[in-house]
Nucleic acid binder design. Structure first.
Lengths: 137, 137
DNA sequence: CCTGAATGATACCACATTAGTATCATTTGT
DNA sequence: ACAAATGATACTAATGTGGTATCATTCAGG
């Protein structure tokens, strides 16, 4: 459900959000070492987030990545969509005639309902909300 | 969420359950042709179901597979577990320190809750219940 | 008792997705 | 100019899913 791409992205964004009072710009090398994520891999992920507007990048010496918007507005569902494509749980069940009549197939109905429930449960979670939990612990 | 293994298994079990008044034993060749599933593949699936007790097999001429228990007691969740392993959505999130403290990680809590919800929604669905829907349509 | 129809077991292959690496080009501060 | 950083992109490796092939075993029927 959550791949390493998304996982790593969440970790990096949390790290950046947590320290954003003291500094805004984080080079990949530093994040990779701190979070123990393979550097070239993390770099690719952050580049993708940059293209999607979640991060903003600065080239050249002293450059790096910074958050493209406040952590309250970075939603985990969006990260999942970016790295894992749109939710489409029911696609597989649609592999026709599990039940011949799709409209009445109980299994399909349930699966679609579960999908909706999942999204609604996840859609309120942001990088900021993840951080706030940590502070309380 | 539901792979072809599970999908095909459900279809085959439904087919057997639907006709079980008239006959109990179904050779793979017949099911494969009727359901348009590649024969050797379906065969492997049914063999697995046999090993798990969902089906019972009979070798030799005139042999085949029959349901190992009434369709009311064949649960879709069990089929998913057989072919796709145990539900373990949270495993990936557990990839340590998405949040450093696992006990308080909001994301993990949510994901685990979603997982439970999924299972509870699915666990009432049996081969029999899928069939009964069809009859109503 | 032999043959053919069936499953049992298992090894293998093809493809897609996920995870990760490598490389060259570009930008920019000193 | 040089070094430190990202941009872009192609490549490789590992894993999972879908499917095939093969040989062994069982067993009903002539």
């Amino acid at each position: 459900m959550i791949t390493k791409h998304t996982d790593y992205a969440i970790r990096a964004l949390c790290e950046m959000a947590r320290n954003k009072q003291s500094r805004e710009l984080f080079p990949v090398a530093e994040l990779a070492e701190k979070l123990k994520i393979p550097r070239p891999f993390l770099r690719k992920l952050l580049q993708i987030l940059n293209n999607k507007g979640v991060l903003k990048s600065y080239k050249g010496q002293g450059g790096g990545f910074k958050l493209g918007r406040p952590p309250q507005r970075i939603f985990v569902v969006d990260l999942i969509r970016i790295f894992q494509g749109p939710f489409k749980i029911d696609k597989c069940v649609l592999s026709k005639d599990v039940c011949p009549d799709v409209r009445t197939c109980l299994l399909r109905k349930k699966v679609v309902a579960i999908e909706k429930h999942m999204i609604s449960e996840l859609k309120s979670i942001t990088i900021a909300s993840l951080l706030s939990m940590k502070d309380k612990s």
